[in-house]
Design a protein around this nucleic acid. Structure first.
Lengths: 158, 158
DNA sequence: CGTCGATACATGCAAACGCATGGAAATCTG
DNA sequence: CAGATTTCCATGCGTTTGCATGTATCGACG
């Protein structure tokens, strides 16, 4: 019975998603317009950011692809560009010779920090005035819960 | 003092945004993979959807652009494609001859409904199990609040 | 050990995108 | 009302993206 859903609950889920999506669009639009994304595109920064948050420093291309809204081939070429710009280093994975490990270069880490600072400031100036601290915490909790539930699910039955 | 923000509040806002963004990515990834978006891309469906929700039926290209995360030129060409496929009608705006009015054709409206149904089902199967009804309502409230606050703001000072 | 399917990444190619710009119409200014 | 400025949409052009496919490696199985 948990999987059975009536009209109103289906409608609620759809409206919730649409609201989340539109909010994301609205915020993203402002962020993109800011000066922080002159040098690197949003997807590129996203990759740099994800690499910067990786504890070991090295990350598989594969795993990176789970965090970014890009196809495998596009990510492959995006990383290729970042490498040519000297922002990331590549290395064949030691335990799986199909795999590729990625790591920020010094320059890449520096650029990420620099853009990250401006980025965070922009975000704060958008989100800060919109929601109280408690509301932000609650929004964070709900979106994390949503993400984990969605990510854990093994896709949808065909 | 309302505009002054300390480190922890800046960090909270950034973490909140990242969580929202990642949740959006996770859900969008699943939605894109579904069979609903074989015929039309997400951006294209978004346009059809927005037009379907327009009370008068006709919508300015200009206003449409506020809802979609696309540049003006890309939207222009996207609409051009939809027109060639017979999904939307164009018409010069009567009161402003620079403007263009858009409306779904019968076929476009039918396609939007068909895809919309599948889309809503997919969303429900992702969001429904993740959050309780109360949580979904709260998430909707918070994201709406965020969107309105961000949208109302006249962009950022340069 | 050899074969077969699955997985990880790269690449050819057409489609879609953003930036810069163009032209036409509206609006502002003196 | 003439000229300057702004707004709205279209278009040229180089870049980025996704799909389909290719190549190499891994893991499973007889």
């Amino acid at each position: 019975m948990a999987t059975e859903r009536n009209d109103s609950s289906v409608r609620l889920a759809a409206e919730t998603w649409e609201s989340l999506f539109r909010a994301q669009v609205a915020v993203m639009r402002k962020l993109q317009a800011g000066p922080a994304f002159r040098e690197v595109a949003v997807n590129e920064y996203d990759v740099l950011f994800t690499l910067s948050r990786c504890p070991s420093g090295w990350l598989r291309l594969n795993e990176l692809n789970d965090h970014v809204l890009l196809s495998q081939s596009s990510l492959s070429r995006l990383v290729e560009r970042l490498e040519k710009r000297g922002l990331v280093d590549r290395m064949p994975a030691p335990d799986d010779r199909r795999g590729v490990l990625l790591k920020l270069t010094e320059e890449g880490a520096a650029l990420q920090k620099e853009i990250g600072r401006a980025h965070v400031r922009d975000i704060s100036s958008l989100v800060g005035p919109a929601l109280t601290a408690a509301e932000q915490k609650e929004l964070q909790r709900l979106t994390e819960k949503l993400r984990h539930s969605v990510g854990a699910r093994p896709a949808k039955q065909d």
